[in-house]
């Protein structure tokens, strides 16, 4: 950096000096752990003892026969599925509505996007409180005469996963709405005019003009929501810790229990690798779609 800019050494050293801080931290604390998690997954290490024993694929064969793993696996997909339906479906509808409105648009948009910046930990506290047996939601249901629907939301096996998915969607749908809005602004206004001239109703215009034009954006939101929801740990851990029993157990909470709490580092890492594989595959897909769009 302080060398004569035209010297040969400056040319060699410059890129090194500029890249060194970022690269060092990145390799030591991100790349190395990624390689390690794969390595750990082939051991029976407990996370403490100095030597680790390699056990080949034993952890992975155990995964295949572990009923709890498959439950967590299934739950993760159900959880993701629910969130995708809400964030993509409802997100698109809200964005399409918002795009037609000028009055109070900023205010409405702010209300919808604001939860995105709230910490999952705070989201967990808020929704745990609202879902309590005597909480706001049950109070509301009783007030409007639907007291029969009142239930301990986070305590009931059939509902807990959906209840948590709703809380997650509340705090993330704003992002889908923003991305859809940006996509909608790029749709050619002339197409709407043409549809109007042809006598199309607003719903028909949405069906035959908006939806086809938004297909690439929809794919982006879809995969984004998928990867985001697969990575969730904080919200579930801070509300139910995977319970009651295993009804809201997802891959990340199961990994944390086995690995960090029970010191089964090898097995926990194998669960981590399964998460890594799914999320990376989805992210690669996401980047390819984005690339195709940029072109």
């Amino acid at each position: 950096m302080f060398l004569d800019p035209d010297s040969k050494w400056a040319h060699r050293l410059n890129p090194v000096l500029f890249l060194l801080p970022a690269l060092t931290i990145y390799i030591v604390f991100a790349i190395y752990p990624t390689i390690s998690v794969i390595e750990y997954s082939f051991t029976s290490w407990d996370g403490i003892s100095p030597d680790r024993e390699y056990v080949g694929l034993a952890n992975y064969t155990r995964l295949f026969t572990d009923k709890i793993f498959w439950e967590a696996f299934r739950n993760t997909f159900v959880w993701s599925g629910v969130i995708i339906v809400i964030n993509v479906g409802l997100g698109l509808v809200i964005a399409a509505m918002l795009a037609r409105v000028w009055k109070a648009r900023l205010l409405i948009q702010t209300c919808i996007v604001l939860p995105v910046v709230i910490s999952p930990m705070a989201v967990a506290t808020i929704w745990r409180w609202m879902y309590q047996p005597s909480g706001v939601i049950n109070q509301m249901l009783e007030t409007i005469g639907l007291g029969g629907l009142a239930t301990p939301w986070l305590g009931s096996p059939e509902i807990v996963l959906y209840a948590l998915a709703l809380a997650h969607s509340w705090s993330t749908i704003g992002l889908s709405v923003i991305i859809f809005l940006a996509g909608l602004q790029a749709v050619d206004e002339d197409l709407y005019e043409a549809a109007k001239v042809d006598g199309a109703t607003p719903v028909q215009a949405f069906r035959y003009v908006t939806l086809p034009a938004l297909r690439p954006v929809t794919a982006v939101v879809f995969i984004l929501t998928l990867t985001q929801s697969f990575k969730v740990f904080d919200l579930v851990w801070a509300t139910t810790k995977g319970g009651p029993i295993r009804f809201s157990e997802i891959l990340s909470t199961y990994m944390y229990k086995r690995g960090a709490l029970e010191n089964q580092y090898g097995y926990g890492s194998a669960i981590g690798v399964s998460l890594l594989v799914i999320v990376s595959a989805a992210t690669i897909l996401y980047m390819q779609i984005q690339n195709r769009e940029d072109r």
Partner: peptide, 13 residues
């Protein structure tokens, strides 16, 4: 690669 690594998956190492 860094964009693809979920923090959750690598917290143990």
């Amino acid at each position: 690669i860094g964009l693809m690594i979920p923090v959750t998956a690598i917290v143990l190492p």
